[in-house]
């Protein structure tokens, strides 16, 4: 276990080194930072002096080493726009993003397992076919469109008058399909619970949860169909296996076969994929947060790019790198606990 963690730590250091080089390398390609700092009116001689002072004329590796040394001490430089340490800016935006990802993950886990298992057990039932059809749409429609449709239906509300209003069924259908709207679709709202430090939470008040609902659904919409299909495919394969047949020959109840024998084996590959996808979801928040003006890291990152706020961009990339490395390590730990054939060792397999 210790050996495994040590090995993973060394991997993590290597990965972070590569990310930092890449992140740092984009600095020179996002416009002139001096221009961003001082504007148009400052004469060239003063600009040159500033450049010299900030070390921008030094060779790349000198600049990188200086950056890396500072970064190791938690100093990613000052955000040009916020005029405060980049890491503080990120820390302020991180909780909102993590709560959004948490909400989406919760939706995905709670829905994908039952739907996936059901459609594997009863592949021909109309309900399974319905979910498979919807999931294809879910995979194909981009998040920002889903988000806008959600806002139209649940926030603005819509009046349906497609069906003849003068018939009973028509007016019922119109009423059934029309929505009141009213769900919040802008930002995190006011009902936040202060936790610690920069962490204000949406999770503990009804108002907060209402604000979290639509963004979470939108973010989940892209991953949920993927997981439903993954679980269904894995489960169907497991149900064909010899050990499931043997369990039936032993006289074990179908319920136990499905939920103990089959589901446990089904979830092994799902855990692996799921871990990677949680990292990816952090990246997807950029789109969701933009549509819902959710004040998290994703929205902050887009703003930072528009403002060429380079220290903030670099710091964001580094933090996302850390999140990926941490979630992947956690996933491997969980996988090792669930799968008895895996032993966590430092040795290569």
């Amino acid at each position: 276990m210790i050996a495994f963690l040590t090995k993973r730590l060394m991997h993590a250091i290597l990965v972070m080194f590569v990310i930092s080089v890449l992140a740092f390398a984009i600095q020179g390609n996002l416009g002139d930072p001096i221009q961003q700092m001082v504007g148009q009116s400052v004469p060239e001689s003063e600009r040159e002096a500033l450049r010299e002072r900030f070390g921008l004329n030094d060779p790349f590796h000198t600049q990188y080493l200086r950056f890396a040394a500072n970064a190791l001490q938690g100093d990613f430089g000052f955000s040009y726009f916020y005029r405060e340490p980049a890491l503080d800016v990120i820390a302020r935006h991180l909780p909102a993003t993590l709560e959004l990802v948490f909400g989406a993950t919760l939706i995905i886990v709670l829905l994908s397992v039952p739907i996936g298992v059901y459609s594997a057990i009863k592949p021909r039932s109309p309900i399974s076919r319905f979910f498979m059809g919807v999931s294809i749409i879910g995979i194909s429609v981009p998040v920002f469109l889903t988000a806008i449709v959600l806002i139209q239906i649940f926030s603005i509300g819509m009046t349906v008058s497609l069906f003849p209003q003068d018939t009973a069924w028509g007016s019922w259908l119109n009423g059934f399909l029309s929505t009141e709207g009213g769900m919040p679709s802008f930002g995190r709202g006011q009902d936040l619970t202060h936790m610690v430090g920069y962490w204000d939470s949406n999770l503990f008040t009804l108002g907060g949860l209402r604000h979290l609902a639509l963004p979470s659904i939108a973010l989940a919409s892209i991953m949920l169909p993927l997981f439903i299909r993954l679980i269904r495919a894995e489960m169907q394969e497991v149900l064909q296996s010899e050990y499931v047949k043997f369990a039936r020959a032993k006289g074990i109840s179908l319920r136990r076969i499905y939920f103990v024998h089959a589901l446990k084996n089904t979830l092994l590959p799902v855990i692996t994929v799921g871990g990677v996808q949680i990292g990816t979801m952090v990246a997807y928040t950029i789109l969701t947060e933009t549509v819902f003006q959710w004040p998290g890291m994703g929205l902050m990152f887009i703003d930072a790019i528009n403002r060429a706020d380079i220290p903030l961009i670099v710091a964001y990339l580094m933090i996302v790198g850390v999140i990926f490395v941490v979630t992947n390590t956690l996933v491997d730990l969980v996988y090792g606990m669930v799968n008895p054939t895996v032993k966590l060792t430092g040795k290569p397999a």
């Binding site: 296996s241 010899e242 050990y243 047949k245 043997f246 369990a247 020959a249 032993k250 006289g251 074990i252 024998h261 446990k264 084996n265 092994l268 669930v338 799968n339 008895p340 054939t341």
Partner: peptide, 18 residues
């Protein structure tokens, strides 16, 4: 499994790995 039980061909595949 109670009054009539079975033995399968491939013992490597017959037991549930987890």
């Amino acid at each position: 499994g109670n009054r009539i039980s079975m033995i399968f061909q491939d013992p490597m595949m017959t037991l549930n790995p987890v």
